[in-house]
């Protein structure tokens, strides 16, 4: 295989044939126009990705195949983007990476993890391929971890290095199974519950604290509350009758950073059942009064206060 950079000028000789020999060049079986020839040499100017392919050269009269190569046009790798994170502290941490721009040719990635003077093994995950994980041999260390990712392909090489403290990369996954329910007979309350992320191995020794944010859909401003323990909370200041969007985030109670927000769940606080009156007029009067203040979505029954479960 012959690798060339995008934009390069490529010249191919027809094997051992003399310059002035009569030859025919094909790409992927198609004859190449003679304008690309310089004698028996094939000259490709400012090659582009589309010019990748199999190039063959045949002797003019005998059609003997004199030369054949597979041209791969691509780019050298740019500095890879590397990220390391511990979402299962204190078991270990994983590092994942990607290239900012494609190279169109095969790249090989090599990662080295050094803790002080120790080389640590980064076990590659089967899926996704651009990820590996490291088991903590020591905890509570002030010695920094140094991760170096080197990417190589036929056209070049690049690397990136991350240096970080043990605690700095601790970031749990978002809380799971977030549930928000109205509280019967309490028009201003919503009961929210969730679970520790399943990836967090030992919540008892390494408890998480949580951050709840909620807002009525009609407003942009979130309200926040931080909860140092427990996996449920009752919102007591909800606007009556307004649908709320609720999310939760988690953080180790002593170190690291907050998780991403959980999947959003929606819920509307409990509202009074409309009373059944004797005369027709009173009913229409009440109904019109209520609909004007609160337009329930057409598909939803007004009393349908079912909780919406977030996964």
């Amino acid at each position: 295989i012959q690798y060339e950079r995008v934009g390069a000028d490529v010249t191919m000789k027809c094997g051992s044939m003399d310059w002035d020999a009569a030859v025919t060049w094909t790409v992927n079986g198609t004859d190449i126009d003679e304008s690309h020839l310089n004698g028996s040499y094939l000259v490709l100017k400012n090659v582009g990705l589309s010019q990748s392919g199999q190039y063959s050269c045949y002797e003019g009269s005998s059609w003997h195949l004199k030369y054949q190569t597979y041209l791969r046009v691509g780019t050298p790798p740019k500095e890879p983007v590397l990220m390391c994170r511990s979402n299962n502290y204190p078991k270990g941490f994983y590092c994942s990476w990607h290239l900012p721009t494609p190279t169109y040719i095969n790249n090989t990635f090599n990662i080295s993890v050094i803790h002080g003077t120790k080389d640590m093994v980064c076990e590659r995950d089967a899926i996704p391929k651009n990820r590996c994980h490291i088991r903590y041999l020591q905890l509570f260390s002030t010695v920094k971890y140094k991760v170096t990712l080197t990417v190589t392909n036929a056209l070049g090489k690049n690397f990136t290095t991350l240096t970080f403290d043990e605690f700095a990369i601790v970031k749990p996954d978002p809380p799971e199974s977030v549930v928000a329910k109205p509280v019967p007979n309490n028009p201003r309350r919503l009961e929210v519950s969730w679970q520790n992320p399943s990836s967090w191995p030992d919540p008892e020794s390494f408890p998480l604290k949580f951050f709840l944010r909620y807002r009525p859909l009609i407003l942009d401003q979130w309200q926040h509350v931080e909860l140092s323990d427990g996996t449920s909370h009752t919102i007591t200041d909800a606007y009556a009758g307004k649908e709320y969007i609720i999310q939760v985030a988690a953080k180790d109670s002593d170190i690291g950073t907050w998780s991403d927000w959980s999947v959003a769940v929606h819920a509307t606080p409990w509202t009074e059942e409309p009373k059944h009156l004797t005369t027709e007029a009173q009913i229409t009067e009440t109904t019109s009064a209520s609909t004007s203040s609160f337009m329930a979505p057409p598909t939803t029954k007004i009393c349908d206060k079912g909780a919406v479960v977030g996964s």
């Binding site: 204190p90 041999l137 020591q138 905890l139 509570f140 260390s141 002030t142 010695v143 920094k144 020794s205």
Partner: peptide, 18 residues
Amino acid sequence: ASVAAVEGVPLAAVERWD
């Protein structure tokens, strides 16, 4: 700045902590 282990300062790092 990474500071080499200083003599006499107890290291918090521990193996098989659990």
